[in-house]
């Protein structure tokens, strides 16, 4: 308080001038309607221009948020489309309908919190976590493309093992009906993955899409994973390694979808009858 008083005393002249100017302007605009209206008409146009610029700037600054919402919406719609394709095929009695849809899969939205690109052994962090029903083993999609699998969950976050991780191995297929193999990454270039275990007699066509097989229970059948770029002879004489460019733009991933196979328990029970004797009895 004392310092405040000292400051006021030290700057008394400036304060007095400001006070007099304030009093003067207040008196003038209080008593002069014409002056007041003229002043505000002039300043109003300037203020209007400033406000307009400010509004433009605010919209510009808000574009990022709007874009984020749109990206999330597009991502959601793509997932919805996949789901509808599956349902439509099922309704038509198409026996291959389960290959191209998310029928019997539940989908939850999420957002990547940190996703280091180009690091061979780094895992990604995303929201939400166990609180939203996420659990280990759920597949993760970005814009309808395979991105990774949930490796672990906390209450609010989930840890994702992305396709680009040297420890990952993903079941993929050349085209919708081609040979299947294991898609993996050697940690060198983020543009090239390898689909190993493809028999040498299989015709590999550059530009073909590699889809998920659905064998691992992480992704449903027919989720696009990458595009064939070429192939090289493998160490094993009867097999070749197919170069696959992943479809996910890993450096642009923000919104993701988590997939859960609603019939996974049923499949597991069937595969492991000892774990649930009641199911096997039926």
């Amino acid at each position: 308080m004392r310092n405040l008083v000292l400051l006021a005393i030290r700057n008394g002249y400036v304060l007095a001038v400001l006070a007099l100017l304030g009093i003067g302007f207040t008196m003038y605009f209080t008593h002069h309607g014409a002056g007041r209206s003229a002043f505000f008409r002039q300043t109003g146009s300037i203020a209007g221009q400033v406000q307009e610029r400010r509004a433009d700037w605010a919209v510009y600054m808000d574009l990022d948020e709007q874009n984020e919402r749109l990206v999330g919406e597009v991502s959601r719609l793509r997932i919805e489309l996949l789901s509808l394709q599956g349902r439509a095929g099922d309704a038509r009695g198409d026996r291959d309908s389960t290959r191209t849809g998310l029928y019997n899969w539940s989908v939850r939205s999420g957002k990547v919190v940190s996703g280091p690109v180009g690091s061979a052994r780094r895992l990604w962090l995303a929201k939400p976590g166990a609180d939203a029903g996420l659990r280990r083993g759920m597949g993760v999609l970005w814009n309808g493309y395979a991105l990774g699998v949930v490796q672990d969950v906390s209450d609010g976050f989930s840890r994702i093992l992305p396709l680009l991780h040297v420890e990952g191995g993903w079941s993929g297929r050349l085209g919708r009906d081609g040979a299947s193999g294991t898609l993996s990454w050697d940690g060198r270039s983020s543009d090239v993955m390898w689909l190993g275990g493809v028999p040498r007699h299989v015709e590999v066509v550059v530009g073909d899409t590699v889809f998920s097989t659905g064998f691992d229970g992480v992704f449903p059948t027919g989720i696009p994973m990458g595009v064939v770029e070429g192939w090289t002879g493998a160490d094993v004489p009867d097999f070749v390694d197919v170069d696959v460019r992943p479809l996910v733009a890993f450096d642009r991933v923000r919104f993701v979808h988590f997939l859960e196979d609603l019939r996974l328990e049923e499949q597991r029970d069937l595969m492991d009858p000892d774990a649930n004797p009641q199911t096997s009895a039926q």
Binding site: L20, G24, F25, M27, H31, H32
Partner: peptide, 28 residues
């Protein structure tokens, strides 16, 4: 100076009914 000019300006404002006009000019 500030007090004299402001008082003079204010007094003239009161006399002329131009409230604030001369006070502002005198302060400047």
């Amino acid at each position: 100076w500030l007090g004299g000019l402001a008082t003079g300006g204010l007094a003239l404002d009161i006399a002329l009914g131009t409230y604030g006009l001369h006070l502002l000019a005198a302060t400047i």
